[in-house]
């Protein structure tokens, strides 16, 4: 996977690209956990360059969402490809995360 981070007025943004499966989920988990542990409360994950996600990726997101909720924070997600959004939908995750169609919609 490829990662980069940036700060906007509203969010601390994690750009995560590539394939998120059992072979890469631990690096995604490390990134996300370190951002939460640093005290960020409004995290936006930009999946514009994410090509694939399996249940292992959702597992990391769910654990992170539970963790940040106990700190009164939230995780939002933007720019998901249709196939990935469908996986979120099947899992019921579209009701748990704030989902934005595009990065611009999220940060505006």
């Amino acid at each position: 996977m490829q990662f980069s981070e940036e700060r906007t007025e509203k969010f601390y943004v994690l750009n995560a690209g590539g394939r998120l499966d059992a072979s890469t989920s631990s690096s995604f988990e490390e990134k996300l956990t370190s951002i939460i542990d640093s005290g960020e409360k409004n995290i936006l994950i930009n999946f514009k360059n994410l090509d694939y996600i399996s249940s292992m990726g959702l597992r990391v997101l769910l654990q992170a969402a539970k963790k940040i909720k106990s700190n009164q924070g939230t995780i939002s997600i933007c720019d998901m490809k249709d196939n990935i959004l469908e996986v979120f939908d099947i899992a019921g995750f579209t009701q748990v995360f704030q989902i934005y169609k595009s990065y611009n919609e999220a940060v505006s």
């Binding site: 249940s55 959702l58 769910l62 899992a91 019921g92």
Partner: peptide
């Protein structure tokens, strides 16, 4: 099958993979 549509606190991480295969 996992509980779909549950509140965040009640959602569990197990079982989703096989649920995807079935779907």
């Amino acid at each position: 099958d996992p509980k779909i549509g549950a509140a965040l606190e009640e959602m569990e991480v197990g079982g989703l993979g096989i649920y995807f295969v079935k779907n």
